[in-house]
């Protein structure tokens, strides 16, 4: 028989035992150990490089020598405000906004179904179906869309079979958003973005709706609200934080993407492409940095407005 049996406490020896005792007595030490490395990583690599970017954007390029002048100036930002550059900003923001609104509209019914009705294996299937596209390469998916949308592609083939070709032709003949084919139009770019970012909209909305108890919807109906009124007064306000969270994803991902619009779309640039061109072939790092600041500023304004409008009140 072990003499320790008489002891009140179970004894755990060794360094690990003493360490866990220490963490029990001083939880702050454990917290510091857990949080330290990731905070250091975020602080240095993430915030640090962001600040470096900000600083870069206040440098300028010497147009003759092509060298970067490391002096504080607003010259680069003034250049950003040129019509040709503002066009790029406006085009990108409009595209991001359209993609966001459209994906919210498509995502909502799917998320609602998943949160309210799907149970058991159906719910598992939902999660797999939503995330399956993310398992394959981004490039493969975008190139696949190029083929789908091409004039000889499967979409046009299907549309012609059901006799809706005139509709597509009418769409493509529209000014600005039209083009020679879906592959070379803003419509095509829009469809690709919509497809790419849809999962990022569905999941937060589903999570938000999951927290709305059924009894709340019952209560609304019980008090006389028709389904449409219940949607406007109860479901939508309560899902709004999820919609805003999803829109942060779709909005910022569209603002920053530079590959999809290059493969599918007209030849006009988006912010991401502009950054890519300026930092690469043009070697204009300050201009690239200034362009990079645009999505950050736009997102900040967007979140500020969302907060002002009470989007986070239901959190």
């Amino acid at each position: 028989m072990n003499t320790r049996d008489a002891s009140l406490t179970l004894f755990r020896g060794g360094v690990l035992g003493r360490l866990s005792d220490l963490f029990y007595r001083r939880p702050a030490i454990l917290l510091a150990l857990l949080l330290g490395p990731p905070l250091l990583w975020i602080g240095v690599v993430y915030v640090g490089s962001l600040l470096a970017l900000l600083v870069q954007s206040f440098y300028s390029i010497d147009e003759f020598s092509g060298r970067i002048v490391r002096e504080f100036t607003f010259k680069t930002y003034l250049e950003l405000l040129r019509p040709s550059n503002l066009d790029i900003v406006l085009r990108t923001v409009l595209m991001a906004a359209t993609v966001t609104v459209a994906s919210a509209m498509i995502a909502f019914p799917i998320a609602y179904y998943a949160a309210r009705y799907a149970r058991g294996w159906v719910k598992g299937l939902f999660f797999i179906a939503v995330m399956l596209p993310l398992w394959s390469s981004y490039l493969v998916r975008v190139y696949a869309w190029k083929l789908i949308l091409a004039n000889e592609g499967v979409l046009n083939w299907g549309v012609s079979k059901v006799g809706l070709s005139p509709l597509v032709e009418a769409l493509l003949s529209l000014p600005v958003i039209g083009g020679p084919s879906l592959t070379f139009s803003y419509i095509g770019t829009f469809l690709v973005f919509l497809y790419l970012w849809l999962p990022f909209m569905i999941l937060p909305i589903q999570a938000a709706l999951e927290r709305v108890p059924v009894s709340m919807l019952d209560a609304s109906g019980d008090l006389g609200a028709r389904p449409g009124q219940t949607f406007r007064k109860i479901i939508f306000p309560l899902a709004l934080p999820g919609i805003v969270a999803g829109s942060i994803f779709t909005f910022s991902l569209t603002l920053g993407d530079y590959i999809a619009p290059q493969i599918v779309g007209s030849s006009r640039l988006f912010i991401g492409q502009a950054v890519y061109v300026h930092q690469g072939t043009a070697g204009n790092l300050p201009m690239a940095a200034a362009f990079s600041m645009v999505p950050i500023v736009v997102m900040a304004i967007y979140l500020w407005i969302a907060k002002r409008m009470g989007a986070f009140n239901a959190l």
Binding site: S215, D218, S220, L238
Partner: peptide, 25 residues
């Protein structure tokens, strides 16, 4: 009308708006 077991009060409305919900509708 029903009083629910979990009360089902609307979290994004204050007390008076909760009570007035049926009239608002």
């Amino acid at each position: 009308n029903t009083v629910f077991q979990d009360y089902a009060l609307f979290p994004h409305m204050n007390v008076v708006d909760n009570v007035a919900y049926g009239l608002m509708i």
